[in-house]
Amino acid sequence: MLELKQLTKSFDGHMAVEKAAFSLNKGEVLGFLGPNGAGKSTTMRMVAGVMEPDHGDVLISGHSIITERREAQRRLGYLPEGAPLYADMTPVEFLKFMARAYRMPRKPARQAIDRVIADARIGNVASRRIATLSKGYRRRVGLAGALLNDPDVLVLDEPTDGLDPIQKRAVRALIARMAPEKAILISTHTLEEVPAMCNRAIIIDRGRVVADGTPESLAAQSPGGLEETFITVAGAAEADVA
């Protein structure tokens, strides 16, 4: 459903993502891990068609994000890093705007909006201005927007960042419920939630994929589990800095 082909991006000669290549099938929930500045968000931006790669391509359900951008984007839900939203709108207005952009007919749009409001549990704030919502609620409004079109591929950049433990669990449950029908790419810094949320994990460091496997197999690579594997494979960068 999602295929990254030698995806490459540099900023002023500095490689942010270098030949990232992997594919995701239906039912896979991929935890996208890596230290700060590893290139996770840059990769996700390119997958979402928000940023053009220098080289390489992304296929979403067979459609190239470069040559058939809008066909690919129709099948994609994207939660950008920090969940940016239009602060002057209410969640309902925001979702109506998204539905219009996805060209959903009136009745299915209304049903979809009701569905994602329930799924993301934002019913109690649905008609408050987004500017007045807490960080956690905003993240959930962004999540609702990403789910609206019932996309094949979900790209979520740190979806659980800023959520309390109860909300984190709710988001994990939501992801688990949707997982069988979708390919999901999730970045996170909370390693503990990876085994609970993902059935596959990739670690990238300085733009390059350095580990790929199930959370269990990655954890088994070091006696200290996933965190130690993370530090071992991505720690070289820290050593350079220090």
């Binding site: 129709r74 994207y78 950008p80 890093e81 940016p84 939203l85 952009a101 996805y102 927007g145």
Partner: peptide, 14 residues
Amino acid sequence: AAGTSELLLSLPVS
């Protein structure tokens, strides 16, 4: 400034 361009450009519109 608000970062919403990220969202806007991920929508299937020209």
